[in-house]
Structures are given as structure tokens and as C-alpha cells.
């Protein structure tokens, strides 16, 4: 009687260990996946490509604009970096600091339309979407 109960509890302990062993990796992969930043929504991407990407890309000649923001890097970066960047974009747009005034003097068509600005502002405010 004692032996069998001992065996039973041993089996239970082994089973528990086994259960934990198979549980853990699934949790970890889930965590890693959720840390990946989401892709840009199509309407945001369209504005970025026509109005921002010219200076803010990986091959940009201007080191400063590339260092401040590189759209080629953005989608590949992790979520925390994306959210930090979005917060800074929101601030810069609210202050009307981008595109730069100097740049717009030579290229007035580079100015963001009200609609484009609204798209970028709403997106960069980071409204939380459930289930993403």
C-alpha cells in the first residue's frame, strides 16, 4: 500500500515536471511574437512614402534625418522602439516641425495636407486596438 502510493506520487511529480516542461516554451514564443512591432497601416504607409521617406530612409544622404528616423528600420524594429518613435512623431507633427520649414521653401508641394496630417496624428497617438 505504502509503496504504491509512493509510486503514485512519484508519477504525479514526474507528470507535473513534464507538464511544466512542455508549457514553458509555448509561453516564451508567444512573448517573443508579441514583442514584434505591428506593420504600418496602408493609409499611413502611403503618406509616409510620399511625404517622409525621401529624407528618412536607410540610404539618406542627410545623416541627421536618417539617425532621427529611418522608415526602412521602423517596421523591422521591436514594439517598444516603434511606440517610442510614434510618440516622437506625434510631438513633432503637433509642433508643426516636420517637414522642416526650410525644406518646404524649396519644395512647397512637400507640405502635409490636413488630411495627411490627421492620418499620421491619429496613428502615432497609438490608439490601442484590441486583439492585436
Amino acid at each position: 500500500m505504502k509503496k504504491s502510493s509512493l509510486l503514485l506520487s512519484a508519477a504525479f511529480a514526474v507528470g507535473l515536471l513534464f507538464f511544466q516542461a512542455i508549457q514553458k516554451p509555448t509561453i516564451e514564443t508567444h512573448d517573443e511574437l508579441s514583442m514584434d512591432g505591428p506593420k504600418l497601416p496602408a493609409n499611413v504607409k502611403a503618406v509616409v512614402e510620399s511625404k517622409c521617406y525621401g529624407c528618412h530612409n536607410a540610404e539618406a544622404k542627410n545623416e541627421k534625418s536618417k539617425k532621427k528616423l529611418d522608415w526602412d528600420e521602423f517596421e523591422a524594429s521591436k514594439k517598444s522602439k516603434q511606440l517610442a518613435t510614434m510618440s516622437k512623431i506625434n510631438e513633432v507633427l503637433t509642433e508643426d516641425a516636420m517637414p522642416p520649414k526650410k525644406f518646404l521653401e524649396n519644395k512647397p508641394e512637400g507640405k502635409l495636407t490636413e488630411e495627411e496630417k490627421a492620418i499620421l496624428l491619429e496613428w502615432s497617438a497609438g490608439k490601442k486596438k484590441k486583439g492585436e
Binding site: K67, A84, K88, G126
Partner: peptide, 13 residues
């Protein structure tokens, strides 16, 4: 939260 992230990101640079 997002502004905290921007601050931390700025601390790095």
C-alpha cells in the same frame, strides 16, 4: 506610456 518610451529612447542617444 508612449512618452516614457520616447524618453528612454532619447536617454540612449
Amino acid at each position: 506610456m508612449m512618452d516614457q518610451l520616447a524618453i528612454l529612447d532619447d536617454i540612449i542617444s
